[in-house]
């Protein structure tokens, strides 16, 4: 693998729920092609997918930026949604504001943020009410 930084950018569209996950799917395939360890790829894929789904169900979409280097993979998911009023509460396993409609689509267990925390080496949430949310996920390669 060369020392070059690879950057990926995806728009996350919230209009069609069945297309949610395309950014994570594309990133996973790229990481596999680059020959990253499958366990590392899985950590990136799961945590990014959780963040991508959150942007779709809680914030009406957004975008994803991925930076791939031989040392680490950095995923940034940004949205212009309502923001998170209480991050500590949102991080608790089981806490969810998801509606029944979302739950019928298979989300709303309140496990997304805890899962992101578990599968990343570092995670940062920047959020402002009425402005949006930016979630940064960092997975070290070694």
């Amino acid at each position: 693998m060369s020392d070059n930084i690879i950057r990926l950018h995806y728009d996350i569209d919230a209009d069609d729920f069945s297309s949610a996950g395309l950014a994570s799917s594309g990133t996973k395939r790229m990481l596999n092609q680059l020959g990253f360890n499958p366990a590392i790829v899985k950590k990136v894929a799961i945590s990014m997918y959780e963040a991508e789904i959150n942007a779709v169900i809680h914030a009406d979409g957004g975008c994803a930026d991925v930076e791939i280097t031989p040392e680490k993979i950095v995923v940034v998911i940004s949205d212009k949604g309502p923001g998170i009023p209480d991050i500590e509460q949102a991080m608790q396993a089981g806490w969810s504001t998801a509606t029944n409609e979302i739950r019928e689509q298979g989300f709303g267990a309140g496990m997304g943020l805890p899962n992101m925390k578990r599968y990343t080496d570092d995670m940062k949430i920047e959020t402002e009410l009425g402005v949006g949310t930016k979630v940064t996920l960092i997975i070290n390669v070694n």
């Binding site: 729920f17 949610a20 689509q105 989300f107 267990a109 496990m111 997304g112 805890p114």
Partner: peptide
């Protein structure tokens, strides 16, 4: 039936049983 519950535990050689049948099951 909730996908984040599925993603909470990484296992090997897994079968996923679910009553949910949308695209996100396949994505998960």
């Amino acid at each position: 039936d909730l996908m984040s519950d599925v993603m909470a535990y990484v296992k090997e050689s897994v079968i996923l049983l679910t009553g949910l049948t949308n695209t996100q099951v396949i994505r998960t």
